[in-house]
Design a binder for these strands. Structure first.
Lengths: 149, 149
DNA sequence: TATTGTTATACTCTATAACTATA
DNA sequence: TATAGTTATAGAGTATAACAATA
Protein backbone atom coordinates (compact mmCIF):
# COMPACT_ATOMS: atom_id res chain seq x y z
CA UNK A 1 0.00 0.00 0.00
CA UNK A 2 3.06 2.25 0.00
CA UNK A 3 3.04 3.12 -3.65
CA UNK A 4 -0.51 2.21 -4.63
CA UNK A 5 -2.17 5.48 -3.79
CA UNK A 6 0.19 7.53 -5.89
CA UNK A 7 -0.08 5.01 -8.65
CA UNK A 8 -3.83 5.23 -8.47
CA UNK A 9 -3.71 8.97 -8.84
CA UNK A 10 -1.42 8.60 -11.83
CA UNK A 11 -3.91 6.23 -13.43
CA UNK A 12 -6.79 8.58 -12.78
CA UNK A 13 -4.85 11.45 -14.31
CA UNK A 14 -3.90 9.36 -17.32
CA UNK A 15 -7.45 8.22 -17.88
CA UNK A 16 -8.59 11.79 -17.69
CA UNK A 17 -5.97 12.85 -20.18
CA UNK A 18 -6.85 9.93 -22.37
CA UNK A 19 -10.47 11.00 -22.40
CA UNK A 20 -9.63 14.60 -23.17
CA UNK A 21 -7.42 13.47 -26.00
CA UNK A 22 -10.02 11.26 -27.62
CA UNK A 23 -12.74 13.88 -27.20
CA UNK A 24 -10.47 16.34 -28.94
CA UNK A 25 -9.75 13.83 -31.68
CA UNK A 26 -13.48 13.38 -32.30
CA UNK A 27 -14.05 17.13 -32.29
CA UNK A 28 -11.27 17.81 -34.76
CA UNK A 29 -12.45 15.00 -37.03
CA UNK A 30 -15.96 16.43 -36.92
CA UNK A 31 -14.70 19.89 -37.81
CA UNK A 32 -13.01 18.40 -40.84
CA UNK A 33 -16.20 16.62 -41.86
CA UNK A 34 -15.12 13.03 -41.27
CA UNK A 35 -16.11 10.50 -38.66
CA UNK A 36 -13.60 9.61 -35.95
CA UNK A 37 -13.31 6.19 -37.54
CA UNK A 38 -12.38 7.61 -40.92
CA UNK A 39 -10.01 10.07 -39.30
CA UNK A 40 -8.30 7.24 -37.48
CA UNK A 41 -7.81 5.41 -40.77
CA UNK A 42 -6.50 8.52 -42.54
CA UNK A 43 -4.19 9.17 -39.63
CA UNK A 44 -2.55 5.78 -40.17
CA UNK A 45 -2.28 6.02 -43.94
CA UNK A 46 0.87 8.12 -44.11
CA UNK A 47 2.15 5.32 -46.32
CA UNK A 48 0.02 3.15 -48.64
CA UNK A 49 -1.09 0.04 -46.78
CA UNK A 50 -2.72 -3.27 -47.67
CA UNK A 51 -6.19 -3.50 -46.18
CA UNK A 52 -5.06 -6.41 -44.03
CA UNK A 53 -2.33 -4.20 -42.57
CA UNK A 54 -4.69 -1.36 -41.81
CA UNK A 55 -6.91 -3.87 -40.04
CA UNK A 56 -3.95 -4.90 -37.90
CA UNK A 57 -3.09 -1.28 -37.15
CA UNK A 58 -6.65 -0.44 -36.20
CA UNK A 59 -6.99 -3.67 -34.21
CA UNK A 60 -10.12 -4.66 -36.06
CA UNK A 61 -11.31 -7.34 -38.44
CA UNK A 62 -10.48 -7.04 -42.13
CA UNK A 63 -14.19 -7.08 -42.99
CA UNK A 64 -14.49 -3.83 -41.13
CA UNK A 65 -11.77 -2.26 -43.25
CA UNK A 66 -13.82 -2.98 -46.36
CA UNK A 67 -16.50 -0.63 -45.06
CA UNK A 68 -14.01 2.01 -44.00
CA UNK A 69 -12.32 1.92 -47.40
CA UNK A 70 -15.72 2.16 -49.13
CA UNK A 71 -16.52 5.30 -47.18
CA UNK A 72 -13.13 6.89 -47.72
CA UNK A 73 -13.12 5.99 -51.39
CA UNK A 74 -16.60 7.37 -52.02
CA UNK A 75 -15.42 10.64 -50.47
CA UNK A 76 -12.42 10.71 -52.76
CA UNK A 77 -9.91 10.43 -49.95
CA UNK A 78 -8.31 7.10 -50.86
CA UNK A 79 -8.08 4.75 -53.82
CA UNK A 80 -7.68 0.99 -53.91
CA UNK A 81 -4.59 0.14 -55.95
CA UNK A 82 -3.70 -3.39 -57.03
CA UNK A 83 -0.49 -4.86 -55.66
CA UNK A 84 1.62 -6.21 -58.53
CA UNK A 85 3.34 -8.66 -56.21
CA UNK A 86 0.17 -10.34 -54.95
CA UNK A 87 -3.02 -9.94 -56.89
CA UNK A 88 -5.17 -10.69 -53.85
CA UNK A 89 -3.93 -7.55 -52.13
CA UNK A 90 -5.29 -4.01 -52.51
CA UNK A 91 -3.20 -1.11 -51.35
CA UNK A 92 -5.05 1.84 -49.88
CA UNK A 93 -3.46 5.04 -51.14
CA UNK A 94 -4.34 8.58 -50.11
CA UNK A 95 -5.50 10.89 -52.89
CA UNK A 96 -4.29 14.47 -53.01
CA UNK A 97 -7.38 15.49 -51.08
CA UNK A 98 -6.82 12.66 -48.62
CA UNK A 99 -3.27 13.81 -48.02
CA UNK A 100 -4.43 17.36 -47.53
CA UNK A 101 -7.02 16.28 -45.00
CA UNK A 102 -4.56 14.08 -43.17
CA UNK A 103 -2.05 16.93 -42.89
CA UNK A 104 -4.71 19.29 -41.61
CA UNK A 105 -5.88 16.68 -39.11
CA UNK A 106 -2.40 16.30 -37.69
CA UNK A 107 -1.86 20.03 -37.63
CA UNK A 108 -4.99 20.61 -35.60
CA UNK A 109 -4.28 17.78 -33.21
CA UNK A 110 -0.92 19.32 -32.52
CA UNK A 111 -2.19 22.89 -32.21
CA UNK A 112 -5.30 22.21 -30.14
CA UNK A 113 -3.88 19.48 -27.91
CA UNK A 114 -5.91 19.77 -24.72
CA UNK A 115 -4.29 19.69 -21.29
CA UNK A 116 -0.89 19.50 -22.97
CA UNK A 117 -1.13 23.16 -23.90
CA UNK A 118 -1.02 23.92 -20.19
CA UNK A 119 2.54 22.73 -19.80
CA UNK A 120 5.56 24.94 -20.30
CA UNK A 121 7.96 23.98 -23.08
CA UNK A 122 10.30 22.53 -20.47
CA UNK A 123 7.60 20.47 -18.84
CA UNK A 124 6.47 19.15 -22.17
CA UNK A 125 10.00 18.07 -22.97
CA UNK A 126 10.18 16.30 -19.63
CA UNK A 127 6.88 14.57 -20.26
CA UNK A 128 7.99 13.48 -23.70
CA UNK A 129 11.16 12.03 -22.25
CA UNK A 130 9.24 10.01 -19.69
CA UNK A 131 6.78 8.66 -22.23
CA UNK A 132 9.57 7.80 -24.63
CA UNK A 133 11.39 5.89 -21.90
CA UNK A 134 8.24 4.03 -20.92
CA UNK A 135 7.55 2.99 -24.49
CA UNK A 136 11.12 1.98 -25.21
CA UNK A 137 11.00 -0.40 -22.28
CA UNK A 138 7.47 -1.48 -23.12
CA UNK A 139 8.22 -4.26 -25.61
CA UNK A 140 5.74 -5.84 -27.98
CA UNK A 141 3.51 -7.28 -25.23
CA UNK A 142 0.63 -4.94 -25.52
CA UNK A 143 0.24 -4.20 -29.18
CA UNK A 144 3.44 -2.29 -29.73
CA UNK A 145 4.42 1.34 -29.60
CA UNK A 146 2.61 4.62 -29.92
CA UNK A 147 0.35 5.73 -32.75
CA UNK A 148 -3.33 6.17 -33.42
CA UNK A 149 -4.10 2.48 -33.42
CA UNK B 1 7.88 24.86 -36.86
CA UNK B 2 10.35 25.13 -33.94
CA UNK B 3 8.32 23.25 -31.40
CA UNK B 4 5.85 21.39 -33.57
CA UNK B 5 7.87 18.27 -34.21
CA UNK B 6 8.48 17.58 -30.56
CA UNK B 7 4.88 18.33 -29.82
CA UNK B 8 3.82 15.93 -32.51
CA UNK B 9 5.90 13.18 -30.97
CA UNK B 10 4.37 13.90 -27.58
CA UNK B 11 0.92 13.57 -29.09
CA UNK B 12 1.80 10.31 -30.77
CA UNK B 13 3.16 8.94 -27.52
CA UNK B 14 0.11 10.06 -25.60
CA UNK B 15 -2.25 8.54 -28.13
CA UNK B 16 -0.32 5.30 -27.91
CA UNK B 17 -0.51 5.36 -24.14
CA UNK B 18 -4.16 6.23 -24.32
CA UNK B 19 -4.82 3.23 -26.50
CA UNK B 20 -2.83 0.88 -24.27
CA UNK B 21 -4.75 2.16 -21.28
CA UNK B 22 -8.16 1.62 -22.80
CA UNK B 23 -7.21 -1.80 -24.15
CA UNK B 24 -6.12 -2.73 -20.66
CA UNK B 25 -9.35 -1.37 -19.22
CA UNK B 26 -11.36 -3.56 -21.57
CA UNK B 27 -9.24 -6.60 -20.79
CA UNK B 28 -9.58 -6.17 -17.06
CA UNK B 29 -13.32 -5.62 -17.36
CA UNK B 30 -13.60 -8.79 -19.43
CA UNK B 31 -11.63 -10.77 -16.86
CA UNK B 32 -14.09 -9.62 -14.22
CA UNK B 33 -17.02 -10.67 -16.39
CA UNK B 34 -18.44 -7.23 -17.16
CA UNK B 35 -18.53 -5.20 -20.33
CA UNK B 36 -16.30 -2.15 -20.60
CA UNK B 37 -19.44 -0.02 -20.48
CA UNK B 38 -20.61 -1.55 -17.21
CA UNK B 39 -17.11 -1.32 -15.78
CA UNK B 40 -16.98 2.35 -16.65
CA UNK B 41 -20.25 2.92 -14.80
CA UNK B 42 -19.10 0.93 -11.76
CA UNK B 43 -15.87 2.85 -11.77
CA UNK B 44 -17.75 6.10 -11.37
CA UNK B 45 -20.18 4.89 -8.71
CA UNK B 46 -17.91 5.29 -5.71
CA UNK B 47 -20.75 7.38 -4.32
CA UNK B 48 -24.46 6.89 -5.04
CA UNK B 49 -25.48 9.01 -8.00
CA UNK B 50 -28.69 10.09 -9.66
CA UNK B 51 -28.99 8.58 -13.11
CA UNK B 52 -28.87 12.03 -14.61
CA UNK B 53 -25.55 12.65 -12.89
CA UNK B 54 -24.08 9.38 -14.12
CA UNK B 55 -25.15 10.37 -17.63
CA UNK B 56 -23.24 13.62 -17.24
CA UNK B 57 -20.17 11.82 -15.92
CA UNK B 58 -20.23 9.31 -18.74
CA UNK B 59 -20.93 12.05 -21.29
CA UNK B 60 -23.95 10.22 -22.66
CA UNK B 61 -27.70 10.62 -22.86
CA UNK B 62 -29.86 9.72 -19.86
CA UNK B 63 -31.73 7.16 -21.92
CA UNK B 64 -28.51 5.25 -22.24
CA UNK B 65 -28.09 5.15 -18.48
CA UNK B 66 -31.44 3.39 -18.20
CA UNK B 67 -30.01 0.47 -20.13
CA UNK B 68 -26.77 0.46 -18.19
CA UNK B 69 -28.64 0.48 -14.89
CA UNK B 70 -30.90 -2.34 -16.12
CA UNK B 71 -27.87 -4.48 -16.88
CA UNK B 72 -26.08 -3.67 -13.66
CA UNK B 73 -29.22 -4.21 -11.61
CA UNK B 74 -30.02 -7.54 -13.21
CA UNK B 75 -26.50 -8.67 -12.29
CA UNK B 76 -27.02 -7.60 -8.72
CA UNK B 77 -24.34 -4.92 -8.83
CA UNK B 78 -26.48 -1.84 -8.21
CA UNK B 79 -29.94 -0.98 -6.93
CA UNK B 80 -32.18 1.94 -7.81
CA UNK B 81 -33.10 3.81 -4.64
CA UNK B 82 -35.74 6.53 -4.47
CA UNK B 83 -34.58 10.02 -3.55
CA UNK B 84 -36.74 11.34 -0.70
CA UNK B 85 -36.06 14.92 -1.76
CA UNK B 86 -37.27 14.53 -5.32
CA UNK B 87 -39.49 11.64 -6.23
CA UNK B 88 -38.53 11.83 -9.88
CA UNK B 89 -34.94 10.93 -9.06
CA UNK B 90 -33.49 7.45 -8.63
CA UNK B 91 -30.13 7.05 -6.98
CA UNK B 92 -27.90 4.26 -8.24
CA UNK B 93 -26.27 2.56 -5.29
CA UNK B 94 -23.65 -0.20 -5.43
CA UNK B 95 -24.60 -3.47 -3.73
CA UNK B 96 -22.02 -5.33 -1.65
CA UNK B 97 -21.10 -7.34 -4.73
CA UNK B 98 -20.93 -4.18 -6.80
CA UNK B 99 -18.57 -2.61 -4.31
CA UNK B 100 -16.41 -5.71 -4.30
CA UNK B 101 -16.23 -5.72 -8.07
CA UNK B 102 -15.44 -2.02 -8.19
CA UNK B 103 -12.60 -2.43 -5.71
CA UNK B 104 -11.18 -5.37 -7.62
CA UNK B 105 -11.44 -3.41 -10.87
CA UNK B 106 -9.47 -0.53 -9.46
CA UNK B 107 -6.91 -2.84 -7.90
CA UNK B 108 -6.23 -4.56 -11.21
CA UNK B 109 -6.08 -1.31 -13.15
CA UNK B 110 -3.44 -0.12 -10.73
CA UNK B 111 -1.46 -3.37 -10.67
CA UNK B 112 -1.53 -4.15 -14.38
CA UNK B 113 -1.14 -0.58 -15.66
CA UNK B 114 0.57 -1.05 -19.04
CA UNK B 115 3.50 1.11 -20.09
CA UNK B 116 3.41 2.81 -16.69
CA UNK B 117 4.92 -0.29 -15.10
CA UNK B 118 8.04 0.41 -17.10
CA UNK B 119 8.83 3.58 -15.23
CA UNK B 120 10.89 3.70 -12.07
CA UNK B 121 9.21 5.00 -8.93
CA UNK B 122 10.99 8.29 -9.40
CA UNK B 123 9.92 8.63 -13.01
CA UNK B 124 6.34 7.83 -12.10
CA UNK B 125 6.37 10.54 -9.46
CA UNK B 126 7.72 13.00 -12.02
CA UNK B 127 5.05 11.99 -14.49
CA UNK B 128 2.32 12.37 -11.89
CA UNK B 129 3.60 15.82 -11.04
CA UNK B 130 3.48 16.91 -14.66
CA UNK B 131 -0.02 15.58 -15.20
CA UNK B 132 -1.25 17.15 -12.00
CA UNK B 133 0.15 20.51 -13.06
CA UNK B 134 -1.42 20.21 -16.49
CA UNK B 135 -4.82 19.43 -15.05
CA UNK B 136 -4.68 22.10 -12.40
CA UNK B 137 -4.11 24.69 -15.10
CA UNK B 138 -6.62 23.05 -17.37
CA UNK B 139 -9.80 24.69 -16.15
CA UNK B 140 -13.33 23.51 -16.87
CA UNK B 141 -13.08 24.03 -20.63
CA UNK B 142 -12.89 20.46 -21.73
CA UNK B 143 -15.17 18.52 -19.45
CA UNK B 144 -13.23 18.94 -16.25
CA UNK B 145 -10.58 17.00 -14.48
CA UNK B 146 -9.40 13.41 -14.56
CA UNK B 147 -11.48 10.31 -14.03
CA UNK B 148 -13.01 7.54 -16.05
CA UNK B 149 -15.58 9.72 -17.73
C1' DT C 1 -4.56 -25.63 -48.18
C1' DA C 2 -4.06 -20.84 -46.55
C1' DT C 3 -4.85 -15.94 -47.25
C1' DT C 4 -6.97 -11.25 -49.21
C1' DG C 5 -10.78 -8.93 -49.58
C1' DT C 6 -16.06 -9.01 -49.85
C1' DT C 7 -20.74 -9.95 -48.41
C1' DA C 8 -24.31 -11.06 -45.10
C1' DT C 9 -25.74 -11.03 -40.59
C1' DA C 10 -26.01 -9.83 -35.91
C1' DC C 11 -24.73 -7.67 -31.63
C1' DT C 12 -23.13 -3.58 -28.81
C1' DC C 13 -22.97 1.29 -27.99
C1' DT C 14 -25.15 5.58 -28.43
C1' DA C 15 -28.45 9.45 -29.82
C1' DT C 16 -33.19 11.37 -30.72
C1' DA C 17 -37.77 11.78 -29.83
C1' DA C 18 -42.13 10.79 -27.54
C1' DC C 19 -43.98 9.52 -23.12
C1' DT C 20 -44.90 9.47 -17.61
C1' DA C 21 -44.55 11.16 -13.30
C1' DT C 22 -43.25 14.37 -10.85
C1' DA C 23 -41.78 19.34 -9.77
C1' DT D 1 -43.54 24.74 -18.01
C1' DA D 2 -39.42 22.10 -17.08
C1' DT D 3 -36.96 17.97 -15.44
C1' DA D 4 -35.93 12.59 -14.25
C1' DG D 5 -36.35 8.47 -15.98
C1' DT D 6 -38.39 5.13 -19.53
C1' DT D 7 -39.52 3.28 -24.01
C1' DA D 8 -39.05 2.80 -28.96
C1' DT D 9 -36.45 3.35 -32.75
C1' DA D 10 -32.52 4.12 -35.53
C1' DG D 11 -27.65 4.66 -36.63
C1' DA D 12 -22.88 3.94 -35.91
C1' DG D 13 -19.03 0.57 -34.99
C1' DT D 14 -17.55 -4.06 -34.74
C1' DA D 15 -17.24 -9.31 -34.94
C1' DT D 16 -18.22 -13.88 -37.09
C1' DA D 17 -18.87 -16.81 -40.76
C1' DA D 18 -19.28 -18.11 -45.59
C1' DC D 19 -17.52 -16.99 -50.10
C1' DA D 20 -14.45 -15.70 -54.41
C1' DA D 21 -10.01 -15.08 -56.23
C1' DT D 22 -5.40 -15.92 -55.71
C1' DA D 23 -1.36 -17.90 -53.62
Amino acid sequence: MTRSNGRQETIDLLMGLSHALSTNFNTVAGELGVSALHARALFNLDQPAAMRDLAATLHCDKSHVTGIADGLESRGLVTREPDPRDRRVKQLVLTTEGRRLRTELRRRLVDDAPVLSRLTADEETQLRGLLRAAFERHTEENGGGPGCG
